[in-house]
Amino acid sequence: MEIEISSSIHLMYVSEIQQEMYDSAQRRGTGIAKRSIEYLSKKISEGNAVIATENSEWVGFCYIETWSHGKFVANSGLIVSPKFRNRGVATLIKNRVFQLSREKFPNAKVFGLTTGLAVMKINSDLGYKPVIYSELTQDEEFWNGCKNCVNYEILMKKERKNCLCTAMLFDPENNKTNSVVNNQPENQYNNEKESHLSV
Rank of each mutant, 00 (worst) to 15 (best):
residue 135 E to Y: 12
residue 59 V to T: 10
residue 88 G to S: 02
residue 191 N to A: 11
residue 197 L to D: 12
residue 177 T to A: 13
residue 104 K to H: 08
residue 171 D to T: 01
residue 86 N to W: 09
residue 17 I to Q: 02
residue 184 Q to P: 05
residue 40 L to T: 01
residue 191 N to P: 00
residue 1 M to E: 06
residue 173 E to T: 02
residue 62 C to H: 03
residue 175 N to A: 14
residue 97 V to A: 08
residue 16 E to K: 04
residue 174 N to T: 07
residue 126 L to Y: 07
residue 48 N to Q: 09
residue 127 G to D: 05
residue 44 I to L: 00
residue 179 S to K: 03
residue 21 M to H: 09
residue 109 K to R: 14
residue 196 H to F: 15
residue 135 E to I: 01
residue 190 N to P: 11
residue 114 T to H: 11
residue 88 G to E: 01
residue 166 T to I: 09
residue 66 T to M: 11
residue 149 C to L: 00
residue 134 S to E: 15
residue 152 Y to G: 01
residue 66 T to D: 09
residue 160 R to F: 14
residue 116 G to A: 15
residue 28 R to K: 14
residue 38 E to N: 13
residue 2 E to S: 10
residue 47 G to N: 01
residue 163 C to H: 05
residue 115 T to R: 10
residue 195 S to D: 11
residue 28 R to L: 15
residue 188 Q to Y: 15
residue 108 A to I: 06
residue 120 M to S: 06
residue 55 N to E: 08
residue 51 I to S: 05
residue 140 E to W: 09
residue 83 K to T: 08
residue 46 E to G: 01
residue 66 T to C: 06
residue 63 Y to Q: 01
residue 10 H to W: 01
residue 34 K to Y: 04
residue 143 W to V: 04
residue 153 E to F: 00
residue 141 E to V: 12
residue 141 E to Y: 13
residue 74 A to T: 06
residue 65 E to M: 13
residue 14 V to T: 09
residue 44 I to P: 02
residue 128 Y to H: 11
residue 164 L to M: 11
residue 25 A to V: 07
residue 52 A to F: 03
residue 100 L to W: 03
residue 127 G to M: 06
residue 189 Y to E: 02
residue 148 N to W: 11
residue 182 N to M: 14
residue 86 N to M: 14
residue 3 I to R: 08
residue 76 S to I: 10
residue 193 K to D: 01
residue 107 N to C: 12
residue 150 V to C: 08
residue 144 N to A: 06
residue 139 D to K: 10
residue 183 N to T: 14
residue 43 K to L: 04
residue 5 I to P: 03
residue 182 N to H: 10
residue 12 M to I: 01
residue 69 H to S: 15
residue 6 S to K: 05
residue 138 Q to Y: 08
residue 127 G to N: 02
residue 60 G to Y: 06
residue 20 E to N: 13
residue 118 A to F: 14
residue 41 S to Y: 01
residue 132 I to L: 12
residue 177 T to C: 11
residue 128 Y to F: 15
residue 158 K to V: 07
residue 5 I to Q: 06
residue 144 N to D: 15
residue 139 D to G: 03
residue 148 N to T: 14
residue 16 E to M: 07
residue 132 I to A: 14
residue 117 L to S: 10
residue 47 G to Y: 00
residue 78 L to C: 12
residue 111 F to G: 03
residue 101 S to E: 04
residue 49 A to N: 08
residue 6 S to I: 04
residue 190 N to C: 06
residue 36 S to P: 02
residue 21 M to D: 02
residue 51 I to L: 12
residue 76 S to A: 13
residue 46 E to H: 08
residue 164 L to I: 14
residue 78 L to P: 03
residue 48 N to I: 00
residue 98 F to H: 03
residue 1 M to V: 07
residue 86 N to A: 12
residue 122 I to W: 02
residue 154 I to D: 13
residue 95 N to F: 13
residue 36 S to H: 03
residue 48 N to D: 13
residue 171 D to V: 09
residue 99 Q to M: 10
residue 49 A to D: 04
residue 178 N to A: 13
residue 139 D to H: 00
residue 97 V to S: 12
residue 173 E to F: 04
residue 188 Q to G: 09
residue 83 K to Q: 06
residue 106 P to N: 00
residue 13 Y to E: 04
residue 39 Y to E: 13
residue 187 N to I: 06
residue 28 R to Y: 11
residue 169 L to H: 02
residue 179 S to V: 02
residue 117 L to I: 12
residue 17 I to N: 03
residue 83 K to L: 11
residue 123 N to A: 13
residue 77 G to S: 12
residue 99 Q to S: 15
residue 116 G to M: 13
